[in-house]
Amino acid sequence: MSTLLEIKGLTKKYSAGTIALNGIDLQVKSKEFIAVIGPSGAGKSTLLRCINRLVEPSSGSIEFEGDRVDQASARELRRVRSNIGMIFQHYNLVNRLSVLENVLHGRLGYMSSIAGMFSRYSEEDKKKSIALLHKVGLENEIYKRADELSGGQKQRVGVCRALAQQPRLILADEPIASLDPKSSAIVMDAIHRNCVEQGIACLVNLHQVEVAKQYASRIIGIKNGMMVFDGPPEALTDYYAALIYEGKESQMYAGGEQQDRRYA
């Protein structure tokens, strides 16, 4: 398996002085399904956002398919981003557009600026996007407006948008943290199945150790901006899990964040 993504010494300091990431080294091979676990505030989200530079890294290098992302020009960065799909905790759909239009946004990176502005998507792209929606069970929602959907449905649209990019890598930032257990399973299945079928590597941020163990081929533990665990799911013993979540044990279990909120 070839190396897809290589991160060396990645550090992020926010202007307020907090250090979100402190020297992360990470190699992702193609087709890997990696779960990034750790308590909230550990820097998981910042790590994912640094990879496609939604957040600017402070120092360190990021190499994606041999290109230096951290030094990329605006044009190069857009090309890199078009090859990296992203899924968000809050779905991040454009609420007043149709489901299909939201999925087609995944194609914008491959189009000229003007064609993209005026939604001149090719018929081929439209057919593929509709096929994706069929595959995740949203065939009846294609022409609904995004704000008419339930949370679980919205997230499946988010997954389709990422897949529509035909990416080499998908970054999923807490994709199930706002969902109920049943929707969570549907969404995680959709992400996992499609990544495996299409040979897409995936980095998925999760709170819940059990979910991570269930899907991932490799698990990374992050705590206070540093990598404290890297290994196969079997190696993540209760001892390590306890170490990663030290002081925030309640978040280890399914629906951690939801529970936190409910009992807060």
Binding site: L54, R78, R79, S82, G85, L108, G116
Partner: peptide, 24 residues
Amino acid sequence: HAVEAVEATGATYLQKLKQAIIPQ
């Protein structure tokens, strides 16, 4: 958030404006 997502797909400034900001 929606604007961020469209940006993450590699959209240009004008695409972001027309596809994510104007509809909202």
